[in-house]
Computed example of a mutant assay.
Amino acid sequence: MIEIVRIDESFEQFEELLALILSSFAYMDGVIDPPSSAHRLTLDSLAQKAKDEIAFVALDGRELMGCIFCKPEAASLYVGKLAVSPSAQGKGVGSALLRIAEETAHGLGLPALRLETRIELVGNHQRFSSWGFTKTAENSHPGYSRTTSIEMTKHLD
């Protein structure tokens, strides 16, 4: 049974969490340009991220199944580093993590979730659309003249 747990900098499984993020983002290597910011994560920066943001993990016992990092903004809760273990994909873990993000947004009085996904990852665009997100902007990473990511927003009831 999957349990969603909030974590902070005292979390004891940052090595496993970093490995989970890297393995779940590995399919992007050689597909997206610029490369994923996941490659810049370290154990220390991940612990700092858990301290600075609202972070949750999905656990099956002690085994990490997924994670989500959320950052409150003026008009939305930004969702980042949504990652699901390759072995757990398609089993509802991502949906469960997004539900907890929605609950968090409601608790903070924020009317929407916002995320960014790379322009090349059309499958992600479709998946997020199926979860109620709509495209709201196109963005470019610094130094790029072409669109490198799209912003998607889900307005909450």
Rank of each mutant, 00 (worst) to 15 (best):
M1E: 09
M1N: 05
I2G: 01
I2N: 04
I4K: 05
I7W: 03
D8T: 06
E9R: 02
S10A: 07
S10T: 15
F11M: 02
E12M: 03
E15V: 12
L18D: 04
L18A: 07
I21G: 01
L22R: 11
S23V: 01
F25P: 00
M28V: 00
D29R: 10
G30P: 02
I32G: 00
D33E: 13
D33N: 14
D33Y: 01
S37F: 07
S37H: 10
H39K: 15
R40Q: 14
L41D: 05
L41K: 09
T42M: 08
T42I: 11
L43D: 06
D44K: 03
Q48M: 09
A50M: 04
D52I: 03
I54M: 07
A55G: 08
V57E: 04
V57Q: 07
A58C: 05
L59G: 05
L59C: 11
D60N: 12
D60A: 10
L64F: 08
G66N: 06
G66W: 13
C67W: 08
I68G: 02
I68M: 05
I68V: 15
F69M: 13
F69H: 14
E73I: 01
E73K: 11
S76E: 09
S76H: 13
L77M: 06
L77F: 06
Y78E: 11
V79M: 05
L82K: 02
A83V: 06
V84N: 06
S85H: 15
S87Y: 08
S87L: 13
A88C: 08
Q89F: 05
G90A: 11
G94T: 05
S95H: 14
A96M: 15
A96T: 10
E102L: 06
E102M: 10
E102G: 11
T104S: 11
H106D: 09
H106M: 06
L110K: 09
A112Y: 12
A112H: 09
R114L: 12
R114E: 12
L115N: 03
E116W: 01
E116C: 04
T117Q: 07
L121Q: 03
V122W: 00
H125N: 09
R127M: 15
R127Y: 15
F128G: 03
W131K: 11
W131I: 00
G132S: 06
G132W: 13
F133R: 07
F133H: 08
T136L: 04
A137N: 12
A137H: 08
A137R: 13
N139F: 04
N139L: 13
S140D: 02
P142S: 13
G143S: 08
Y144R: 10
Y144H: 14
S145I: 03
T147N: 05
T147L: 03
T148W: 06
I150V: 15
I150K: 00
M152C: 10
K154V: 01
D157L: 13
